[in-house]
Amino acid sequence: MSQTLTITECLECDAAVPWENDARVGEILECPECRTELEVESVEPPRLILAPEVEEDWGE
């Protein structure tokens, strides 16, 4: 069962962004305040970057 492990600040609005303890590098988190998409760049130490914009050829 995942539990909140840590909290990082949103790079856009500084709001608190909670992380689950099973987060993985490359996972996308959404800021609960401004809805900005943030990418997990590093789990240890915890570090977020702005997620890339969706590109035209993205999909499945």
Binding site: D22, R24, G26, E27, I28, E39, V40, P52
Partner: peptide, 14 residues
Amino acid sequence: LASRVRFEEKSILA
């Protein structure tokens, strides 16, 4: 191989 880890990639890795 994945640049974006969605539900699917996370589930497969797990």
